[in-house]
Amino acid sequence: MKKIIFMGTPHFAVPILESIVQANYEVVLVVTQPDRPVGRKRVLTAPPVKEAALKHDIPVYQPEKLKDSYEALFAYDADLIVTAAYGQLLPKELLEHPPFGCINVHASLLPKLRGGAPIHYAILQGEKETGISIMYMAEKLDAGDIISQRAIRIEEEDHVGSLHDKLSEIGAHLLIETLPALFEKTNDRIEQDETKATFAPNITREQEKIDFTRTQEEVYNHIRGLHPWPVAYTTHEGKTMKVWWGEKSINEYPSKRAGEIAHVDEEAIDVVCGDERAVRITEVQLAGKKKMSVKELLRGNKQLFQVGQVLE
C-alpha cells in the first residue's frame, strides 16, 4: 500500500482527503495550518482538514512555518505528498524527497489563474469555464507540469461558494482517477505554457469595494465573485454596507448616475451601473448589523433606501 502525506487546510481540501482515505491509500500524516482565533470572540479553532484527519485517527502536524521544520516529514517515509489549498510553499528539499514526487490539486485550468484565489477570479473576470488541475509541484507557485485536468462550466447563477463545492468534489474524483497511473509511472506530464499564465492573488480589501461605473455584467460578477466570502461592499449614507447578493435587473436607466438608486420596491433596490443598466440588490448588511434581505430592512424602515440616493 502506498503511503501518502496530505497537506491542506480549508473546507476545499476535506473531500480530497476523504477520497484518499476511502480509496484505501495509507495517509500517514496530515499537515495543516495552526489553529487560529475565529470570530468576534476570537475562539481558537482547528482547520477543517485537521478535524477530518482526527476523525480517521491520522496524525496531524501544524508547523507555523513549514520551511523551518519540514525535516520532520522525512520520518514518515511517504511515497507521495498530495497538497490542496495548504497555504504555504514547500521547500525544494521536501519537493525532491518522495519517490513519486509532490502533487497539487489546484482549482483552475492551469496555466490560467495561478495563486491563492482562483475560484474568486474565475467569476470576477467573467470566465465561462474553469476546472481542476492536478500537477507536479515546483518551486515556482503553481508552475509545475500538469498531470490531469477536468473542466466545468461556470453557470450564470454560480458564486464562489457553489463553485468552490463543485470544484472540491471534482478534485477529489479526479485525484483518485489520476493516482493509479502516477504510481505506475504511466501518467501524462505536460509542461505549462508560461506565455499563457495568469494570476489570482489573494483578494485585498480594496478589491472588495464595488465600482458602479463598471458595466452591469461586471458589477454582477463582482458581487457573486465575492459571495459568500469575503463579500463585496459599498457605502450607504457614508457608512459601509456589505452587498451579499444581487441580480441583473431587466430595467435600463438612461441619464442616471452610476451608483444611483433608481428604483425601490418591496424586494430589492435597483442600482445603476456604468452602462445605464442596473443590478438589483436583494441582500445587504448595514454597518454594525446582521445580514438581512432588503425586504426585511424595508419592512422596518421604508425610508432607508430612497430613489436618488447614490451608493459610493
Rank of each mutant, 00 (worst) to 15 (best):
T234Q: 05
L66N: 09
E18V: 09
E96M: 11
A200P: 01
Y220T: 09
E260R: 03
Y220I: 11
I16M: 06
W245G: 15
K3I: 08
E127C: 14
L311Y: 15
A262I: 09
K196V: 10
K185N: 14
E194D: 14
K41P: 08
M241Q: 01
D165I: 09
S19V: 06
D193I: 00
V160P: 00
G115N: 04
P15H: 06
I5D: 02
K50H: 08
L226E: 08
H106V: 09
A53L: 02
V284G: 06
V28Q: 03
L311W: 15
L89K: 10
S249Q: 00
D57F: 05
G131L: 07
M1G: 10
Q88A: 06
T178L: 05
G115E: 03
R153A: 11
E208P: 11
L182T: 04
L44M: 15
V294Y: 02
R280W: 12
Q33T: 11
V264W: 13
D211A: 11
K2R: 14
K50D: 10
K55M: 12
K50P: 07
P111T: 13
E237P: 06
D265C: 14
H11A: 14
V105R: 01
Y253M: 02
G246K: 00
V21W: 04
G171Y: 01
H106W: 12
I154D: 03
P10E: 07
T198P: 04
V14Y: 03
A268D: 07
V272S: 12
W245Y: 15
D211P: 09
G308P: 08
A122I: 02
A107L: 04
R277I: 06
I152P: 00
A143P: 06
L163F: 10
E169M: 07
K295E: 13
A23Y: 09
I20H: 01
V14P: 03
S19D: 07
A278H: 12
A232V: 04
H236F: 11
P254G: 01
D77H: 12
G115H: 04
I20A: 02
K112V: 00
K55E: 11
S168W: 07
L124Q: 00
F183K: 03
V231F: 10
R150I: 08
R40I: 13
I281M: 01
I81Y: 12
Y253V: 00
